[in-house]
Design a protein around this nucleic acid. Structure first.
Lengths: 111, 111
DNA sequence: ACTTTAAATATCCAACTAGCTATATAGCCA
DNA sequence: TGGCTATATAGCTAGTTGGATATTTAAAGT
């Protein structure tokens, strides 16, 4: 199970996000993925290795080709982390709301 | 508006994610944020600068202190990117389902 | 005014990254 | 077998990153 570090880091590069966007449309080979970019084939292979290491992409073997596919599980874990952060944030906002309501009630008493 | 590059990159470091988790609980100063880590104050300041550059954190001035707060807007844009990727992915899955259904129907005819 | 405290900045370093070109591997086809 | 094609690997470079320590800035307290 790759770390969130690796996943976020993989997502931080625009070329890699473009590759993922392309793979969301369906499987593609390394050369197909390289075509839209003005980058060398080795550069794309390296990006794919990063994406694979992050659990975002998997490859199968088909003759000399290595078709890649998107692996949504890694995205799930990103979503979960973000959701948890928001949950804490909102819990805290609610607590603050409660606090403000209390303070307001006390002021109301005082008047 | 900071780029997704900067935001994902900021999120790729565990120290920075821990800082965000702490800030989800409420404002904190640099020293407060530094306390749980065995890192120097300048290291934390640098992390905060990265988080600020990514739009994830903002700071206000209070005497000699710079209390930091979480800025959820940048998270929204991450969510949106992930959601769009999933949307495309699911659209494509559905299209594939449709295709398979068609193929199946034809085979059904043939038999 | 002097001291203490909070934070930022400067400088250095080792490790990593993203790109390149050149080369190697390995499957397909004639 | 020999040649073509798809991909991977090696080795290089320039730029970036995350850490450290030392220093500077600036506000607060006394």
């Amino acid at each position: 199970m790759p770390s969130l570090d690796l996943t976020f880091s993989a997502l931080s590069d625009p070329t890699r996000r473009a590759i993922l966007a392309r793979l969301a449309l369906g499987e593609a080979t390394v050369l197909e993925l390289a075509a839209p970019f003005s980058l060398s084939q080795p550069a794309i292979s390296k990006h794919l290795k990063v994406l694979e290491g992050a659990g975002l992409v998997s490859r199968r073997i088909d003759g000399t080709r290595r078709p890649c596919r998107l692996e949504p599980g890694a995205l799930d874990r990103v979503d979960q982390w973000l959701a948890e952060l928001r949950r804490v944030l909102e819990t805290n906002y609610n607590r603050l709301d409660g606090l403000l309501a209390e303070l307001y009630a006390q002021e109301g008493d005082a008047q």
